[in-house]
Amino acid sequence: MRSVYLKELTIYFSSPIFYVIACIFVCITGVFFYNSMVYVSLLTVRIAQYQVESGVNLSEILLGPIFADMSMLIVFIVPIISMRLYAEEQAQGTIELLFTYPVSDLKVLLAKYLAGMTILTCMLAITAVFMVLMLVVTSPDWGVVFTSYLGLLLMGGAILSLGIFASSLTKNQIVAAALTLGMVLCFWVVGWFAGVLPDTPTSGFLREISLVNHLSRFLKGILGVKDIVFYICFSVFFLSLSLRVLDSNRWRG
């Protein structure tokens, strides 16, 4: 399992794909960070001018939008990380090597999942630089920073499992990425429907299966067991679906 994990990482780091998406991710997050910083500085100046009793939590104003923006970027970037995981093997025929080596399909799947998570973690780790820079203006609420990162990772993991599922279905990486994005957006917009529908069990259900609704509490600094369990179950469900698909691919040869 360790070998497969290392192999996936080697391929990620030896192809331009990681550098391109990490670069885009960090640059755009940087722009958002700059915007927030400018906004907050203006706000502080104003607070100072009018001598307002400062009930404003600067770090919340700063952090909230940054992490919300990052979550949106993750929605677009994780499908690009996950698209190659099985589609590439199926297109190149290397799946035949991998599936005849003495290692179980489950271990291969987990190794690939972990490799994807590692790539995501690397990208998120780079953005930690911004948190440190924030110290110049204000000390961020480290608790919120922690829960936000955790939330982003859990949501990223859920999207990654969707991506692996899509990747197991096809030989074509573009199709895999598009399919993942489509499914993620579906699991996103169901949350909006929940807001429009009258308060019935259906709307409650839609709200609960929405990928984004569960993130909002993390971004406020709340660690909800329900949210953590949701993301983990979501991942397990789609990973086990992928296993079924791969098994059926074997039968069909």
Partner: peptide, 24 residues
Amino acid sequence: YLPENTPLYTDMRVKTFLKFVAGV
């Protein structure tokens, strides 16, 4: 096993690839 048309991880270097296979 050497499958038909010799599929290999083309992005990897020969030695790294062999190391991976040895591990698996």
